[in-house]
Computed example of a mutant assay.
Amino acid sequence: MAGHAPRGCELECSWQQTYRALIEAAYAEPTLRRLYPFTSHWALRFSTTTRPNLTVVGLCLTAGSDGTYGVGRGFVTPDLGLFAMADEAVAAAVYRLPSSLGPVTLGG
């Protein structure tokens, strides 16, 4: 992912370890590392452009307080599944990404 891990993993919460595992699993995936990561409402999302004008692609990844990881098409709705492992959720998200994603560009 362009830059470093989103700052959300540094905040204290009951699912901090689960959330951090999700961010680390996403960072380990080369396809996602080519995108611009951002967080909002404890969800991990990706863009092909930087702020301020994000071009959101792919899916929304979430980490639950129960230790599960969600993948959804909508904002914070795991309608594509819940997973026991962060890398399983990341793999499910990458599988559904468009194949023609280019490098990150400025969102100015």
Rank of each mutant, 00 (worst) to 15 (best):
L59K: 10
C9Q: 13
A89W: 01
T62L: 08
S40V: 14
A63P: 06
Y95L: 13
T68G: 00
L61C: 06
T48C: 06
T77V: 15
T48L: 03
L80T: 04
S40L: 13
A93L: 04
R20Q: 12
L44K: 08
P37K: 02
T39N: 11
N53S: 12
T55P: 00
A63H: 04
D66G: 08
H4A: 11
H4L: 10
C9S: 10
L32W: 03
P30K: 10
E29Q: 14
E88D: 14
S40Y: 12
F46M: 04
A63M: 09
V76Y: 05
C60S: 15
E24G: 02
D79L: 08
V76G: 00
E10Q: 14
Q17K: 14
R96I: 01
C9V: 14
L106C: 06
Y19L: 10
T18E: 14
A84N: 11
V90H: 03
D87W: 05
V76M: 11
A93Q: 02
T55H: 15
A91F: 04
L61N: 05
S14R: 14
F46T: 07
R33L: 04
A25N: 04
G58F: 01
V56H: 10
G64H: 15
Y27A: 14
C13W: 10
H4M: 09
V56I: 13
D87M: 03
F83D: 03
L22E: 03
G74W: 12
P37C: 01
L61S: 10
E12N: 11
P78H: 07
Y69Q: 03
T77E: 14
R34W: 00
T77S: 11
R33W: 01
E24F: 03
